[in-house]
Design a binder for these strands. Structure first.
Lengths: 206, 206
DNA sequence: GGATGTGAATGTCTTCACAGCT
DNA sequence: AGCTGTGAAGACATTCACATCC
């Protein structure tokens, strides 16, 4: 399949959430125009995004909500669930580990690690914080699909190297550092201070 | 000033973080090549990004670390500090309210609100959770620069409308909904489940 | 009639490549 | 010699506009 832009994939994820909402309201069909308005884009953009993967609509009618929902879940790889581990049990890590929005969408956080002996052994919602030194042996036993890195900045690269050596191929990084990774490992960075700085820029330049 | 791409602003924020690191190590100058490698981009991109705002380097030498640091802080609007409030004192909201990475970069979270009477009155690190019904009267008294919305999805738009009516002009939204806003209000969305979905897509398409 | 699907046109961002300083 | 600053070229993404089909 032809290479799809990151921005397109992000919008597909937005469309899916909207479709689930419409489905819950019993709506049968939806037009690109309605999806666009709710997703903050244009109808042409919606049609173009979908057209990369096939033609799912009916001219004159729009898209079938249940059908497009299934198609998008398939395209995004969401027909299965994912095992997720979190490294770094600080404030952010603990919030992420317990975030309901993940579980609702098939991302199951099943392990949390920290280096601090004071945190190891704590229970959160049935999740026990494990010693990060166990990382390799645990990963050899139980397969994990995605790792969330929420360690302090100076520990992030080392932890990442260990995750990659243990076979992890997707990382969501909350540490404010640019991780160095083999090209076949997917990474997404979430840098919250950076988001505030873009707001600061926006406030200043108007 | 000409309009600057969002992607450029985000990279400037990355460069600034790197410059602060280099400054802490006593480095006097840095080349676009070094900045690029560490930021995960190209030297031409670094030079182009900076050139929108002036010519800060010396040919044959590179950029003065302290000077470029000051310039970027100025460009990004970081010479001042910002008053930040958080609405929604759930797991994510409480982690954000106490996140040290914000304070370190001049973003001071000075108020947290929630609608749940069971949470109102709780103290976190000297921050007291206030009743969200007080929002308007508090904002009339104490100026706030940026609001972080970390409510459940169904409350996000209503809270946002109240924030905007009270004069807030910058919003960092963690609720997984597309907020409708006047064009003069800056908004950044952080959608963590969406990030995982782009990873899910990446895992599937390789 | 009404909405999709899609080439073509436009707009935006990135990379190239080199003249010009230091 | 080394590295910046920047037009020009190229790559990529979005928008237009309309033929096509239900």
């Amino acid at each position: 399949m032809r290479k799809i832009a990151e921005s397109t994939v992000r919008r597909l994820s937005l469309y899916l959430r909207l479709l689930e909402e419409f489905g819950g309201q019993g709506k049968e069909t939806v037009s690109s125009e309605v999806l666009a308005t709710r997703a903050g884009t244009t109808s042409a953009q919606v049609r173009k995004d979908l057209s990369f993967f096939g033609s799912f609509g009916k001219r004159g009618l729009g898209y079938s909500v249940p059908e497009l929902t299934v198609r998008l879940r398939d395209i995004l790889g969401l027909k299965r669930s994912y095992q997720v581990l979190v490294v770094g049990a600080g404030k952010i890590g603990s919030a992420l580990a317990q975030y309901r929005g993940f579980a609702e969408r098939g991302f199951r956080v099943t392990a949390v690690y920290d280096a601090d002996p004071g945190k190891v052994g704590l229970r959160w919602n049935g999740l026990v914080v494990r010693d990060v030194r166990q990382l390799e042996q645990d990963l050899a036993r139980d397969h994990m699909d995605i790792a969330i890195v929420s360690t302090p900045p100076n520990a992030a690269q080392e932890v990442t190297d260990r995750l990659v050596r243990s076979g992890i191929r997707a990382i969501l990084n909350f540490a404010p550092v640019q991780l160095v990774l083999p090209r076949d490992v997917a990474v997404k960075n979430v840098n919250m201070a950076l988001e505030l700085e873009t707001l600061s820029y926006a406030l200043r330049h108007r």
